[in-house]
Design a protein around this nucleic acid. Structure first.
Lengths: 186, 186
DNA sequence: CACACCTATTCAATTCGTTGACTGAGGAGA
DNA sequence: TCTCCTCAGTCAACGAATTGAATAGGTGTG
């Protein structure tokens, strides 16, 4: 019952199909909420049943038809109500950290490989966020954007994503460095 | 089937009861894995059934008896095998971020309060991590610790926790600042 | 021309996570 | 003495998430 809030927040950016939402969840929202396509489609069904969103079928020429969802007034109301309730504590699960925690009894080479792969992933993501930021700002300074834009929420969460991935990259580098030095000692 | 790896990683620090583990998960492991007591106790039952851990009943004088779990050889083997498989992508769910994302249509005052509360939480956690770090280092420099300690995994994940909370605090401050300025404009 | 990947969803099965309540003892402080 | 806190768990029920597979046309690459 919490995924729906993330879905509604995503729909503030404009109408989207289930497929579009899976894309949005893979890119910008991934920053603070992960969801699989199945989760999203199921939740959309329920939300439609509760009049939080409305679907309009869009017929397409060379593609399968799609159902595009928009937030209803009720949906906006629920989203607003959600923002005034205290949020739950953050939930994280990161297997890579578990591997690093147990690296001393584990396969250090494999862990290093995993960290390297995460580095690639994080830097791709950072690049994506930076492009999104440039696109949002569109030549203006941050000051200008913050004082003129209709919505600042997406910009704030984007800043978080950038800071987080930069921090991740620094930590990954540090871990690789330390693990390599340790490996050399053996 | 993933929680068990976190549990085994925690048991590398030494034998622990279910209750101890809930504490460990609340403090150091919370950094990368969240689990409720119920999840932990249930998982411990299963793990015992699969000979990944062993229980010894410790009778206590003025307290209820407890069952203290230790990693078996099989458990260590499984943990090692886990470290050589590619980790799953990180899973995060943070309602606070969803609230920030939708702050423009939401209750900005409530969101600010929520951010302030998270600030308190993060700074308590940071303090805790810093004390843990001082305790781990025990007067030595990081260099010395890394070259002499038997295990470096816990130190590495601790560094991550510290960096993460520092980053969180910077972001929370920034968000409060921006939201207050916005609020003042209305 | 084949083959893989993209769009756009749906279904079923199973595992996992969350909530709330319950037991019971001892210790600390008002 | 009363109440709250810590220790040390257990149980039931429900909701949410994950995995794997299926469908079906279109588009791009070698």
């Amino acid at each position: 019952m919490a995924l729906r809030n993330a879905v509604m927040a995503a729909l503030l950016e404009g109408p989207a199909s289930g497929y579009d939402l899976t894309k949005i969840f893979d890119s910008s929202v991934a920053n603070f909420w992960m969801a699989t396509p199945q989760q999203i489609y199921r939740e959309l069904e329920r939300m439609e049943g509760e009049d939080l969103i409305e679907a309009t079928v869009v017929r397409q020429e060379r593609r399968p038809d799609k159902r595009v969802f928009t937030l209803t007034g009720r949906g906006r109301g629920e989203l607003r109500a959600f923002t005034s309730r205290p949020p739950r504590p953050i939930a994280i699960r990161d297997e890579l950290m578990v591997q690093v925690q147990s690296v001393d009894v584990g396969d250090a080479d494999a862990v290093r490989t995993a960290v390297t792969e995460r580095t690639a992933w994080s830097s791709a993501r950072l690049g994506h966020y930076l492009r999104l930021r440039a696109h949002l700002l569109d030549g203006r300074t941050e000051e200008e954007h913050l004082s003129r834009a209709e919505r600042i929420g997406p910009y704030l969460t984007l800043l978080r994503g950038i800071a987080l991935e930069e921090e991740n990259l620094r930590w990954y580098e540090r871990v690789l460095d330390i693990l390599e030095r340790r490996g050399a000692l053996r």
